[in-house]
Amino acid sequence: MNIFRLAGDMTHLASVLVLLLKIHTIKSCAGISLKTQELFAIVFLTRYLDLFTNFISIYNTIMKLIFLGSSFSIVWYIRRHRVVRRSYDKDQDTFRHFFLMWPCLILAIFINEKFTLKEVMWTFSIYLEAIAILPQLVMLQRTRNIDNLTGQYIFLLGAYRAFYILNWIYRYFTEEHYVHWITWVAGVIQTLLYGDFFYYYFQSWKNNVKLELPA
């Protein structure tokens, strides 16, 4: 575990906590894409199939359980919670998200490190995570007005990806047999998707004005 990996995990954890905080205390999920949250739940479900068979560390197991639990409870809140679900902007969140899963599945069947069910599902989760943020970004572009917590949530998610790239660079130079093209390419694409958002986030921060995306 290096400092970049830890920073990546912590910003990822913080992003989830910020979102849960918003939903749980303000009882609102305004501006949050249910489609993206459903994709994240599928990402964690398919990636952590080895949760009980492949033990790495207490830290890993606890973090996996947190990400699984939080992603499914966020989906539950938006779909089922009596108050929260009323704040969901259904009309702004029209991305046909399940169509994103097919290309990821086909790609995972053909491009993987080992052709086994667990490995293909793991690879599928890597591909799907790379594009899972798209419905959320489309929704941001539509609503344009972004509240502070939603802005921080997406910023923290992007920061998590950026730290993971630094972690891979660090591991490449410090560990043997550490070449993972699949995760690297998918991870870089995923991080690039946040580029535009980062630009406007830093602009608003620098000029001390409310974050608003251009039409």
Binding site: R5, D9, H12, D50, N54, I56, S57, N60, M63, K64, F67, W122, Y164, N167, R171, E175, E176, H177, Y178, H180, T183
Partner: peptide, 10 residues
């Protein structure tokens, strides 16, 4: 530690 596996990442 020289493990070289991306499976220990989240």
């Amino acid at each position: 530690e020289r493990t070289g596996s991306s499976k220990d990442e989240l």
